[in-house]
């Protein structure tokens, strides 16, 4: 699979001296569902801001669709990579839902008809078309989150990146969001999620990238999430499903399942064997 984003030896240091990224290297394959995992302060948010040219590499490279990002192509990067911030109140700023969703397309210089078409489509994609005249401060947290996503979708990016998308959502809100992400992915968008929610990563991702202290610890399939040494080093924990199987110790041989469906399958096989 070709890579849509390649990061090589990226460094970033904040003005107060915090070295947030120190040699980050990773690859995001085209059309994949990628989870970037790491404890608080690992540098996930700092890294995401590099993906559409808000922060430029102080050292190292970020390549988007083969082009190395710099001050000159930062605008183009914004139309290719849509960034959904953690707190929708940071992102949804306009007086009404509709105006907010129009904001990106207008900045892209599209004509009025196209802006409207895209805004309408984006609102439909997140199921918010009925609330388009609402003021953001009258919306629930989950609704604001969906507006934030629509505001990015309206720019038709080829990659959509979400920072801690599940934080503060209620269970239904989480399901809604997962459904939206699944649909986006099915329609060909590369979806990248930064999170410390290992259960979500285990359920949803195709590829996980584990980072800590601004460096990549590991990249690979979700099997990484059940690797004890890695989980310990990354200050994460096992997915709940895996924890259950590990508790049973030697009774059940690894590899242990990490997704609910995998676990069900595992148990089914086990029980069928038992009854025979």
């Amino acid at each position: 699979m070709a890579a849509v984003i390649e990061v090589e030896d990226l460094y970033y240091r904040y003005r107060d001296g915090t070295q947030a990224l120190q040699g980050l290297t990773l690859t995001i394959p085209t059309g994949a569902r990628v989870a970037i995992l790491g404890p608080n302060g690992a540098g996930k948010s700092t890294f995401l801001l590099h993906l559409n040219g808000i922060y430029l590499p102080q050292q190292g490279k970020v390549r988007l669709l083969g082009r190395s990002l710099d001050g000159k192509n930062a605008r183009w990067a914004k139309s290719q990579v849509g960034l959904v911030f953690q707190d929708p109140d940071d992102q949804v700023f306009a007086g009404t839902v509709w105006e907010d969703v129009c904001f990106g397309p207008v900045n892209m210089g599209l004509d009025a008809g196209e802006v409207e078409r895209r805004a309408g489509q984006a609102l439909r994609a997140v199921g918010m078309e009925d609330l388009r005249t609402k003021a953001p401060h009258h919306l629930s947290y989950g609704q604001k989150k969906r507006v934030a996503i629509a505001g990015v979708l309206a720019m038709s990016p080829s990659v959509i990146v979400l920072d801690e998308p599940m934080a503060y959502l209620d269970p239904r809100g989480k399901d809604n969001l997962l459904a939206i992400l699944t649909r986006l992915h099915r329609d060909g968008t590369t979806v990248v999620v930064a999170t410390h929610d290992v259960d979500m990563a285990a359920e949803w991702a195709e590829k996980v990238i584990i980072i800590k202290e601004g460096r990549t610890l590991a990249e690979g399939s979700t099997d990484l999430l059940t690797d004890p040494a890695l989980v310990e080093a990354a200050e994460l924990r096992f997915p709940v499903v895996t924890q259950i199987f590990r508790r049973l110790g030697n009774m059940l041989p690894p590899p242990h399942p990490k997704r609910v469906e995998e676990a069900a399958q595992y148990l089914r096989t086990l029980l069928e064997g038992h009854h025979k």
């Binding site: 801001l49 559409n52 808000i54 605008r75 914004k78 139309s79 849509g82 960034l83 911030f85 707190d87 109140d89 940071d90 992102q91 700023f93 904001f103 990106g104 207008v106 900045n107 892209m108 505001g151 990015v152 720019m155």
Partner: peptide, 20 residues
Amino acid sequence: TRADRVYQAMLARGFSGHQP
């Protein structure tokens, strides 16, 4: 700090200082 994040989120959607 909130103001800064709002501003960054606007930059992420291509804000350039002009509002038509």
